[in-house]
Nucleic acid binder design. Structure first.
Lengths: 167, 167
DNA sequence: GTAGGATTGTTTCAAACGAAACCGTTCGCA
DNA sequence: TGCGAACGGTTTCGTTTGAAACAATCCTAC
C-alpha cells in the first residue's frame, strides 16, 4: 500500500470529516437558506410558492409556452409544473388552452391579472437578488457567476436526469 | 412618473426577468443538482439518505452527541433529526441511550457497525467533493469558500429560523 | 389507413417534509 | 417542597414531493 508519494491529505489531518468545511454541504445550506427567504417573501407578497413564481417568471418573458417549455426553462419536472400551473390557472393568473396544432400540448400565457402581478414580481425579485449580492464586491459577483456556470456543468454531468430546485 | 435619473437598469434591458441569469435561481439549481448526485451515491453505496448521512458524519466526528447537538451541526430541524436517528438506530448503525444526567436528552454514538460504515463514508464523500471541485482551479476553490461564507451570513440574516438542506 | 410506438400533460401513490401538538423531564423560584 | 415555565425529543397532521401509471394525441411506417 502506502506509496511514497505526496498524497495531498486532501482536507485537513484526515480521517474525520468536518461537515462545516464540506463544500457540498455548505452549498446546500446556503442555497436552502436563500430559497427559504425568497419563498417567504413571494408568499407574503403574492401568495405564490416558488414553483408558481418560476412559472410566472418564464411566462412573463416567453409566453406563449407549453408545459414542456416551462419544464425546460425552470429545471422542474413535469408533475411539479402541472401542479403549479393548475394553481395559477385556478387563481386567474394564467390562461391555459389546447394547442390546436397539437392537442397534447398546452398553450400557457399570463392573463391580464397575471401580467399585473408579473410587473410587481420583477422588481421584487431584482431587489432580493440585490439584497443577497450586496454582501459581495462586483468582482465577487462575477466570480460567483463563473463558479455557478462551471459547477452547473459539472453537476449536470454527475447527476442523471434533470435539476430540480427551490430557488 | 419617469424621473430623469440614471436608474441603473440593473440587469439587462429590464422589465423582463431572465431566469437563467437570476443568480438565486442558478444557485438553487446547482445546489440541488449536486445534492441529487450525492444522494444517489450515498443511497447506492450505503442505503443512506442525506439526513442519515449527515447524522453519521457528525457522530463520526463528534460522538457522543445529543439530538440537539446534531441539529446544531447539520442545519436540520429536530423532527428530521429524530427520524434520521430512528432509522439509523433501527439499522444498527447508531446507538441511542438516555443521558443519565438529564433524562430528556439522548446520547448518540456510532455502533461498531456504524464506525465501519463511517470509515467508508469519509473517503467516498471526499472523492465526490473532489469530483465536483475538479472543474475549478485552486484559486476558484478558495473563491467559492469565501463566497459561501459571505452568502451564508447574508442569507441567515434574511431568513428567519434555521437553514435546512439536502446536501 | 391503421397498428405500434412515442410524446404530452395529469393523476395516483407512497414517502418525506415542516409546523405544531405532545409527553416526560428538569429548572427557576417562591 | 411544589408549581409553572422551559426544554428535549417524538409523534401527528396536512402538504408537498418524485416516480410511476395513465389517458389522450400524434407520428411512423407499412
Amino acid at each position: 500500500m502506502a506509496q511514497i508519494t505526496d498524497e495531498p491529505v486532501a482536507d485537513e489531518e484526515n480521517d474525520a470529516l468536518e461537515l462545516g468545511r464540506f463544500l457540498p454541504y455548505r452549498l446546500s445550506v446556503v442555497s436552502n437558506l436563500v430559497s427559504k427567504a425568497f419563498a417567504r417573501r413571494y408568499e407574503a407578497a403574492f401568495g405564490l410558492s416558488i414553483p408558481e413564481w418560476r412559472v410566472m417568471a418564464v411566462l412573463g418573458r416567453y409566453a406563449p409556452a407549453s408545459s414542456a417549455d416551462i419544464c425546460a426553462r425552470t429545471a422542474m419536472d413535469k408533475a411539479k409544473v402541472s401542479r403549479a400551473v393548475a394553481r395559477l390557472v385556478a387563481g386567474g393568473l394564467v390562461s391555459r388552452k389546447d394547442n390546436p396544432l397539437d392537442q397534447r400540448q398546452n398553450v400557457l400565457a399570463l392573463s391580464r391579472k397575471g401580467r399585473g402581478v408579473y410587473q410587481q414580481i420583477v422588481p421584487l425579485a431584482r431587489a432580493m437578488e440585490r439584497e443577497v449580492l450586496e454582501t459581495l464586491s462586483a468582482d465577487e459577483v462575477r466570480q460567483l457567476d463563473t463558479l455557478l456556470t462551471k459547477l452547473h456543468a459539472r453537476a449536470e454531468a454527475m447527476a442523471p436526469g434533470g435539476g430540480e430546485g427551490v430557488d
